[in-house]
Simulated assay, not measured.
Amino acid sequence: MKVLVIYCHPNHQSLSYAFLQQVLHGSEGNGRISEVQVLDLYEERFDPVLVFHEHKRRRDMHKDPELERHREQLKWADKLVFIYPIWWGRPPAMLLGYIDRMFASGFAYRDHGKLLPEGLLKGKSAVCISVMKGPTLYPLFWLNNAHKILMRKALLQYVGVRKVKFFEFGNMENAKGNHAKKLQRVFDYFQGLAG
């Protein structure tokens, strides 16, 4: 199994970064994972801004030469792992910009005249690992699970990724937030991951 980790947090001293380390360490001990690549959006200074004009048309996004390496990463991976904080009830703008630019028609999906498009990333699975300051159940009761609906239905299932696992951790700025236990859960998941 080939794993692409898309990491989105500007601070390498953050809990998000600690979760990234747990994914990597857990994957190292898993013989079913053959290779892991990490795309650190902030470290790479990924440009999340969509630009359309007479020379850069929306219908040509799927072949933008500037993004070819990133398209190859997405095609290469069997499992996509997104690691990010929840800010204002949703992933950071940097990650949303990556999604806007990368999951383009002609690459991630194809319209074919039916109600829903054909997802072109079929056969892949995904894991979303997110942390937030508020309580774990805050998104469910206050925001009607908007974050999970965005990631699972509006994005991943739309492009053909059917199997999506969530680790959504709350109270992460609280000293009693059980950080070690939550980090261990992620480590154990990746160490035992079968597919």
Rank of each mutant, 00 (worst) to 15 (best):
M1L: 08
K2S: 00
K2A: 03
I6A: 00
Y7C: 03
N11Q: 13
H12I: 03
Q13G: 12
A18V: 06
F19L: 07
F19A: 01
Q21W: 02
Q21T: 02
Q21I: 03
H25T: 13
S27N: 03
N30F: 01
I33M: 00
S34Q: 14
S34W: 06
S34L: 10
E35G: 03
V36F: 04
Q37R: 15
V38A: 01
L39Y: 03
D40C: 03
L41T: 00
L41E: 01
E43N: 14
D47A: 10
V49M: 08
V51P: 05
H55W: 12
K56N: 11
R58T: 08
M61Q: 15
H62G: 04
K63L: 11
D64W: 05
E66F: 08
E66V: 09
H70K: 08
H70P: 00
R71H: 09
R71M: 02
L74R: 02
W76I: 05
A77G: 02
D78M: 05
D78T: 07
F82E: 01
W87S: 03
W87H: 06
W88C: 05
G89P: 00
G89V: 02
A93I: 02
L96V: 07
Y98R: 01
R101P: 01
M102G: 03
A104F: 05
G106H: 04
G106D: 02
R110V: 03
D111C: 09
H112E: 10
K114I: 04
L115M: 09
L115H: 09
L116M: 13
P117L: 11
P117G: 09
L120A: 07
L120C: 08
G123H: 06
K124L: 07
S125K: 07
A126L: 05
V127M: 05
I129Q: 05
S130E: 06
V131P: 02
M132T: 07
K133N: 10
P135K: 14
P135H: 13
T136P: 05
Y138G: 09
Y138E: 10
F141H: 13
F141K: 11
W142A: 13
W142C: 09
L143R: 14
N144S: 12
N145Q: 12
L150Y: 15
Q157E: 13
Y158N: 04
V159H: 08
V159D: 07
V161I: 15
K163Y: 14
K163S: 10
V164H: 11
F167P: 06
E168A: 12
F169I: 10
M172R: 06
K176F: 12
G177H: 04
G177I: 02
G177P: 11
N178M: 12
H179R: 14
H179F: 13
H179T: 09
A180S: 11
K181A: 15
K181N: 08
L183H: 05
F187V: 03
F187A: 08
F190G: 02
F190I: 06
Q191G: 13
Q191W: 07
L193Q: 06
A194E: 15
A194Q: 15
G195F: 15
